[in-house]
Amino acid sequence: MDTQWPRYEVFKQDRPGEPHESIGTVHAVDAEMALQNGRDLFARRPKCHSLWVARADAITSKTAEQLAAKELATDNSWQADIDPQAPTETYLVFQKQTERRGMTFTTHVGEVEASSPVHALQQAIAIFPAEQVFVWWVCPASAVTRSEEADTLPMFAPAQDKLYRLPNQYRTVFTMQKIKRGKDVIE
């Protein structure tokens, strides 16, 4: 038996007050396991204060290219999806804001109240304008599971002490310079 478990997007917050950023996915049977796997995969080094996970299929993603194509479409599906009477819920909004090389994808920018993913996307575009957004994500808040404040220490503190995982703990460049100058180096 080999089942392909659902994918969860993982969002990481480096320090309190900073936004959560999407960093990749894990497979897990449920959200609790996704948080654990997220910790093992993305918090092996110092600098993690909180993790969120959400089923990948709960997230609606649109790239700038997809949005532009939608505007040009002759059909009305972009508008037709929204029922003003429908009950609303809270959606989290994420943006990819830069093409600069980095290890994170979308960044959490805030919340909107909406009745559907398309409605949430429209609200997000109206409420969180930015000079350039390359990718938009919206996700119902109810689909997000968050590590708790009380978990911060047991989940993330062990990585703090593992300084040997950091390249700056190895003085290879300095040592090679000394050797080249003709000095014996016994560490």
Binding site: P167, Y170, T175
Partner: peptide, 13 residues
């Protein structure tokens, strides 16, 4: 970066 440097450190030593 850590992987490379820990290896280099060993060979230097």
């Amino acid at each position: 970066g850590f992987h490379k440097k820990q290896g280099q450190e060993m060979i230097i030593q």
